[in-house]
């Protein structure tokens, strides 16, 4: 029995909710139990936004994550807020373009990905979120790499299917990122 508690946090506009939705749809495609819970309200417009995704092999109780086993921090306030909450032995993914400091804890695995820079260099400016998700899939085993395209097709809205390729590329960049 495996349960993954993934907390994604950053500024509104960084695609925090979208990244969570992608993982949720991937879980759905894999036939797992899942919940996706966003922060909602004024903070979505420019302030901090976060979303909790739980993927599990058994029915999910509370959809709220107080202690994530996987934390994706896309800005400094998010790392400051959730670093201490991450479970010992858990994983923290840091967008090192936007977060200058290192993770202070020694009992978690940390991955620094200059995702915003990588996205910008590749002309995928809004897809730092998916670059990090690619790395998460590689390192965490929250879901399989196989079938990512099926999940992407579900989460990218019908009128934006032209963005499938860019999202796929971002995921691959993260997946292949060594660091």
């Amino acid at each position: 029995m495996k349960t993954n508690r993934i907390l994604i946090a950053g500024f509104g506009g960084q695609g925090v909710l979208f990244a969570g939705k992608f993982l949720a749809y991937k879980g759905l495609c894999e036939g797992r139990q899942l919940s996706w819970l966003p922060s909602y309200g004024p903070e979505m417009r420019g302030g901090t936004a976060n979303c909790s995704v739980i993927l599990s092999d058994e029915p999910i109780g509370s959809p709220i994550i107080t202690t994530p086993d996987t934390l994706i921090a896309m800005n400094l306030p998010s790392l400051d807020k959730y670093e201490a909450a991450t479970v010992p032995g858990g994983q923290i993914y840091v967008d090192s373009t936007l977060i200058g400091r290192k993770v202070a804890r020694g009992d978690v695995s940390v991955f620094y990905i200059p995702a915003t820079q990588m996205a910008s260099d590749a002309g995928l400016t809004t897809l730092a979120n998916m670059i990090i998700v690619g790395k998460v899939i590689r390192e965490s085993g929250v879901c399989a790499w196989e079938g990512i395209e099926d999940a992407l097709k579900k989460v990218v809205s019908a009128r934006h299917q032209d963005l499938l390729g860019a999202n796929l590329k971002a995921l691959e960049m993260g997946y292949n990122f060594e660091g």
Binding site: K21, A24, L28, Q33, L34, S35, W36, L37, P38, Y40, I60, P63, I64
Partner: peptide, 10 residues
């Protein structure tokens, strides 16, 4: 409540 309204599940 707000959680039930905002959360997504299958």
């Amino acid at each position: 409540d707000g959680t039930m309204g905002q959360m997504m599940e299958p």
